[in-house]
Design a binder for these strands. Structure first.
Lengths: 129, 129
DNA sequence: CTGCATGCAAACCGTTTGCATCCCC
DNA sequence: GGGGATGCAAACGGTTTGCATGCAG
């Protein structure tokens, strides 16, 4: 079983609070307010650990930084191609699609991710000027 | 118009030859056989340039390295979660899905990507032993 | 007490960039 | 001759890792 240290507890708590799908660095900054001496390495190590334990999800999509999500159920995301911000999308997940895919390839299909690319409200506003 | 230098020509030629969706480094190694003095920077610069010119596509998907694709039409991919290898998937692209998404968010939807996660034949073989 | 977890800093790796040189118009 | 393109090497940014110390069980 995974040991419940203070750091892990607070990381999970803070990740659950936000809907912004923070990067490791963003979460580090958030958590630092409560644990000023926490190290970035600890954040990365524990996020990775919790991903493996199935407690959180790592968003394996575009962009150069990985993002983390306390929601573990399968759902889709939109990413702003200008600022990188991400949001959940409450679309019905198409389960049949993995079966279709399985028929088209010799890969053993384990799952799928969908990422919509878009422009977030803030960036629309900013670029309109 | 984009100047067609020897380097660009050969990069495009070699990228078109392979279906493996190579990373910049992989393509660098391939191209080096014909242009031993080419620099990695040139590879990155020109790939980026060709992406902007719409001549090739950059795969904005998971994994730590970006991959490039000479096919510019919208299509989906499978990625092996063990070795990272990618393959095309000839599934019909669902266009309506972006309309559905648009109704669910305040982001302006520009497109979408689908990435299937799987295990490639080689890794299936290797892990079975 | 004992081993896993932490903080810190250095290492890593993919990518980008600055710069002197080169080549093509 | 001039402006973009190149090769090279250094810089960069996100992530990982090694190690001495600390803390939970």
């Amino acid at each position: 079983m995974i040991r419940l240290t203070t750091q892990r507890q607070i990381l999970l708590e803070e990740l659950s609070k936000v809907s912004s799908h923070p990067t490791a660095c963003e979460l580090y900054e958030i958590v630092r307010k409560r644990l000023p001496r926490i190290g970035l390495g600890t954040v990365y190590r524990n996020l990775e650990l919790m991903v493996h334990a199935g407690m959180i999800r790592k968003l394996e999509l575009g962009g150069k930084q990985k993002r983390f999500d306390a929601r573990t159920d399968l759902h889709y995301h939109v990413r702003c191609s200008f600022c990188g911000k991400m949001a959940d999308l409450s679309l019905p997940v198409e389960k049949k699609i993995t079966e279709h895919a399985a028929q088209k390839t010799s890969y053993k299909i384990l799952g799928h991710n969908v990422e919509f690319i878009g422009e977030c409200p803030a960036c629309q506003q900013e670029r309109r000027t």
